[in-house]
């Protein structure tokens, strides 16, 4: 496998994991712009736990899961104030959370402050890929459970969900916390993949992009974030190689402008995301009919 391909696949694995971190809250109706905050916490905790010189010198097998669990614990505690907000106010609250985390870490000398922090242990694609597959499979399983049904019901109508026995508050807390777990996992994996992290990696643009992966992919089905992350990771690269192939600097250099236009078009034509329940059902219905015909 070429270096370029394995680097791109590593980015894809990481992007898929962070997409599911934001998908789980989104599937239960929460707009979470705090992806950067979770990534910073997970990344720095993972790096610090692993570092021989500055931190505890734990093996990577311990530092990554511990960082993810600690991020989940922080998300759990934060969910109580943050889940008092709704809709666009929740976007602002989670954004503020990410900014506060960035501000704190930027001034934390023990992890290098603005200079960034070197991470010792290296996690290559052979680590990222299995974890990514596990995350995807777990999320598909989770969404197929009664808990997943409760999450989607809370998304559609929390009052009715409550009257049918769903404990709306705990479903929302659990979804937010699980999102924090995956966000921390992403951060820790990222640190161990690139062996160097800085707060600037996870600024507000990052959080916006991740939320876009999920909203453009679709929040109604666990296929959504998979497609969203794939689209956002692969399309700019395809545009770059296409531009290079046809020798057009306009396409190669202006690929983000073209990409932006594509995003606007997708919002216009698929406002509920690329993957919707109706679309899945049509695909499956057609598949069943074809099976019946043969």
């Amino acid at each position: 496998m070429s270096g370029y391909l394995s680097a791109q696949l590593s980015i894809l694995c990481l992007n898929i994991i962070i997409a599911y971190a934001i998908f789980l809250p989104a599937a239960s109706g929460q707009l979470n712009l705090g992806a950067g905050g979770f990534a910073i916490i997970g990344g720095y905790l993972g790096g610090w736990l692993n570092s021989d010189f500055d931190g505890l010198g734990l093996a990577m097998q311990l530092s990554i899961p511990l960082a993810a669990l600690a991020t989940a614990a922080i998300a759990f505690l934060l969910s109580f104030p943050i889940l008092r907000t709704r809709g666009v106010y929740m976007v602002l609250a989670t954004f503020a959370f990410a900014e506060v985390v960035a501000g704190i870490v930027l001034n934390l000398e023990v992890v290098g402050g603005a200079a960034g922090f070197p991470v010792d242990g290296h996690a290559d694609l052979s680590v990222l890929a299995p974890i990514c597959v596990m995350v995807v499979v777990s999320c598909f399983l989770l969404m197929s459970t009664r808990f997943g049904l409760a999450m989607r019901s809370v998304h559609d109508d929390e009052n009715v969900a409550s009257l049918f026995g769903v404990n709306v508050h705990w479903v929302r807390v659990a979804a937010f916390t699980l999102g924090g777990l995956l966000g921390g996992l992403y951060g820790a994996l990222y640190g161990h993949q690139y062996n160097y992290i800085e707060v600037q990696n996870w600024n507000v643009m990052f959080s916006i992009y991740v939320l876009l992966y999920v909203l453009l992919g679709g929040t109604q089905s666990p296929f959504g974030p998979l497609l969203g992350a794939l689209f956002f990771t692969v399309v700019p690269e395809l545009l770059r190689s296409f531009g290079a192939a046809v020798g057009s600097e306009l396409i190669a250099d202006g690929r983000f402008a073209i990409f932006g236009a594509l995003i606007v078009l997708m919002m216009a034509f698929r406002p509920e995301g690329i993957v919707t329940r109706t679309m899945l059902e049509r695909l499956m219905g057609r598949g069943a009919r074809e099976k019946g015909a043969t």
Partner: peptide
Amino acid sequence: MPHLSTVENIMLGQH
């Protein structure tokens, strides 16, 4: 629930 299938809506009733 508009985004759930018929069967899923019934299963919400079982919750």
